[in-house]
Nucleic acid binder design. Structure first.
Length: 218
DNA sequence: TCGTGATCATAA
DNA sequence: TTATGATCACGA
């Protein structure tokens, strides 16, 4: 399934609106997990499959030829996000030459296909319904704020102060651990320029920001 | 082992 | 109720 235009991809995504995950799964002979305790990414990966994304775990948008990133987002019945949205890992070393302009996070956020799913916890997963997907790109002001968050983080990391960054850092985009567990460590720059070990981190969009994106759309 | 898909569990 | 820090599965 190769899309020639963003509109084709959007049409395909919107054709899923109104269906439950159970309906779509039975159509494709897939099994819906009864809970997400161990398969936290199942819904996202199932939607990727339905839409034909195949970027896998590469650090690039899901549809590289279109430059479009697919994000499923759990919402309540009023359309409010239930979780933050993961974007990409935070670079912690080899920062020379890294800029907002050439960053993975910017390339992913430049064009996003949002696919909201009504996912209140009391709704069984197979009964969760897909809401209306839409294409989004950040406004000039939004990109400016995202760039600022990004540059503040990278500057702090470059100064060897990664350990001073927690989830309160960043206005639209925060930084949180992104690892198999709290014992998984990766290399970063220490206070004296030495190599230290620290938790891998990820950039996440705050729910307040994604809520404003959804509000603009609906 | 790392980056992808994220949600879970509990402290605040 | 919300936000933070922790965690799970998979593919390359």
């Amino acid at each position: 399934m190769a899309y020639k235009t963003p509109q084709q991809l959007l049409d395909k995504a919107q054709s899923l609106a109104g269906f439950t995950l159970g309906e779509l799964a039975s159509k494709y002979q897939a099994d819906v997990p009864t809970h997400l305790l161990r398969e936290k990414g199942w819904i996202g990966q199932f939607i990727e499959y339905l839409l034909g994304a195949k970027s896998g775990s590469l650090a690039q948008p899901d549809f590289p030829e279109l430059g479009i990133e697919l994000k499923t987002i759990p919402i309540d019945r009023y359309g409010r996000p239930l979780e933050s949205t993961y974007v990409s890992v935070v670079p912690l070393n080899n920062l020379a030459g890294l800029s907002w302009h050439n960053s993975v996070v910017r390339h992913k956020l430049l064009h996003v296909l949002w696919l909201p799913i009504i996912a209140e916890k009391e709704i069984p997963i197979e009964q969760r319904q897909i809401a209306m997907p839409f294409l989004w790109h950040p406004s000039q002001q939004q990109e400016q704020l995202l760039q600022q968050d990004f540059e503040d983080v990278i500057e702090t990391v470059a100064m060897g102060k990664i350990d001073q960054i927690d989830a309160r850092f960043g206005e639209l985009m925060q930084v949180r651990p992104k690892a198999a567990n709290s014992k998984a460590l990766t290399e970063a720059i220490g206070p004296d320029g030495e190599t230290i070990l620290t938790l891998p981190r990820g950039f996440y969009l705050r729910p307040q920001f994604t809520r404003s994106i959804l509000d603009e759309q609906f």
